[in-house]
Design a protein around this nucleic acid. Structure first.
Lengths: 132, 132
DNA sequence: TTTTTAATTGATAATTATTATTATCTAATA
DNA sequence: TATTAGATAATAATAATTATCAATTAAAAA
């Protein structure tokens, strides 16, 4: 996951802010703007929330990160990797990733509707082991 | 779809307000509180928004309707039928239903995680025929 | 390496939704 | 007769931005 290279490929400068934002998102798995801001402030105390907003928008536009939307959660972001399902514990609100495995659900749906899909969100609500 | 019976089975009075709310949701497919309120006002001008809120909560609790959550949309409701996918046109924002068909994705995921699922949301964003 | 320059960051408050409720008590009714 | 509806304002987040412009800097060119 060479973020520097990825940024340059998309014509974006690989600024320390951007690289840190990407690494924070990667580490967080699914993380909202406020949390990104707070983590980044510890590393770059001078960081501006505007910088976060500007970059998140840019990174989503360029397809380097994805926005994660789950009802009753704030807008979150994740590093754009393979498609996966979000398993959300309704009690502790922890979010787990579940890979499709061998199944290409995007392709499956595209065939079914005979059309191209932009984005697919699969959110599954359950009660995780710890919360039982 | 005998709503009167369904309500009675859950121990709820089958009031005209409730029956109308259910029919409005059924007709609307996916409809938010404001729209339910506006449609209902035309039939029962005296209807109170509080009545809508109270009933929607009750109906969700009893499993007679489902809440529909799609990012950038207001909270919506639908009559609880079979599980299906929401196809959302990113331009006109119309929401289409797509049945799973023979595939029981809930069961598939439950097997995969060896656990029970409460709810599953599948939202697919695309550009519908009319908007192309 | 140095220079150039176009892109990016920082500061910041101020603002805009808008969404979603809900309390409470009387009256009506399934 | 226990539920449910009506009235209603008042409220509570809370989430999400965004404008603007000077200062800085990453990357390319020399």
């Amino acid at each position: 996951m060479d973020f520097h290279k990825k940024l340059r490929e998309k014509g974006l400068k690989a600024t320390p802010q951007r690289l840190l934002i990407l690494n924070i998102i990667k580490e967080g798995g699914h993380i909202d703007i406020e949390d990104i801001y707070n983590k980044l402030k510890k590393i770059i105390p001078s960081i501006s929330i505007a910088t976060i907003y500007k970059n998140l928008k840019l990174l989503v536009d360029k397809g380097i990160i994805k926005d994660v939307n789950i009802s009753s959660f704030k807008q979150m972001y994740e590093v754009n990797t393979k498609e996966h399902i979000h398993l959300i514990c309704k009690k502790c609100r922890k979010i787990y990733d579940l890979d499709f495995g061998e199944i290409d659900i995007k392709n499956f749906i595209e065939k079914k509707i005979d059309d191209k899909i932009d984005k697919i969100e699969i959110n599954v609500f359950f009660l995780c082991e710890k919360c039982k």
